[in-house]
Design a protein around this nucleic acid. Structure first.
Length: 222
DNA sequence: TCAATGATTAGC
DNA sequence: CTAATCATTGAT
């Protein structure tokens, strides 16, 4: 099953409508992070939690590359960042400030540290473990890299595993036929803003942050 | 072995 | 603006 997923090929372009293709695959991710990051906007991150699946539309991403001083693996490979050197489609999760987990999609090719940080999701429904009183509260539940990991119960246990629809975490392309989505994102109408990254002290000038202009679930604007 | 720090967040 | 909180990191 996992092999089938990996062999789906490179047919998952932005506007594919083949409903048999349900997940982003390794080939689609075998591009540099600054190429993949804006393409992930409007795609759906899906998390299996027991019987239920939590879904959220990706509305904010950042790219990190091997020659980028802000990248965790800029100096060398370590035990913490080892997953960043994995094949495209590998999951890289790290703990930041001793408090929050952050989720990355490994891109490009095996042996090269290159990844996209998922910074915010527009959740379609509240996770089973959480309650929200207003629609606005739901908008903010995954509005930040640490918050989305908490909402989807993502932690270090997933680090080093692979995005896979047969597993616990995967990504569905913009094109998937998702009639149950309360927040459909029409690829033709994606208004993408490109700007500089947040929270870093080196490589600050690289314009490698992207977000959906009109999304109420973006962590910050500007 | 040890001190500094960080791709953050909530709260004052 | 700052505390929380800890694995990783790079320097002793």
């Amino acid at each position: 099953m996992i092999e089938d997923f990996l062999q789906l090929g490179d047919r998952l372009g932005d506007r594919q409508s083949d409903t048999s293709l349900t997940a982003i695959n390794r080939t689609w991710l075998a591009r540099s992070a600054p190429e993949v990051a804006p393409d992930l906007l409007g795609c759906v991150l899906a998390r299996r939690c027991g019987d239920t699946i939590i879904r959220g539309t990706i509305v904010e991403t950042e790219a990190y590359t091997a020659d980028d001083p802000a990248c965790h693996a800029y100096r060398r490979e370590t035990r913490r960042n080892a997953a960043m050197f994995g094949a495209p489609g590998t999951i890289y999760v790290y703990l930041i400030y001793g408090v929050h987990h952050c989720l990355n999609v490994v891109t490009l090719r095996e042996g090269v540290a290159d990844a996209v940080l998922i910074r915010a999701l527009q959740l379609t429904d509240p996770p089973p473990t959480q309650t929200v009183s207003t629609p606005k509260a739901l908008d903010r539940l995954a509005a930040g890299p640490g918050k989305l990991c908490r909402a989807l119960d993502i932690d270090l246990r997933l680090c080093g595993t692979t995005f896979n629809p047969e597993g616990e975490l995967w990504i569905e392309p913009r094109s998937a036929n998702r009639t149950t989505q309360p927040h459909p994102t029409n690829p033709k109408d994606l208004a993408i803003v490109q700007t500089t990254r947040i929270g870093i002290t080196r490589g600050v000038e690289r314009p490698w942050r992207w977000y959906l202009r009109d999304s109420p679930a973006v962590s910050r604007y500007g």
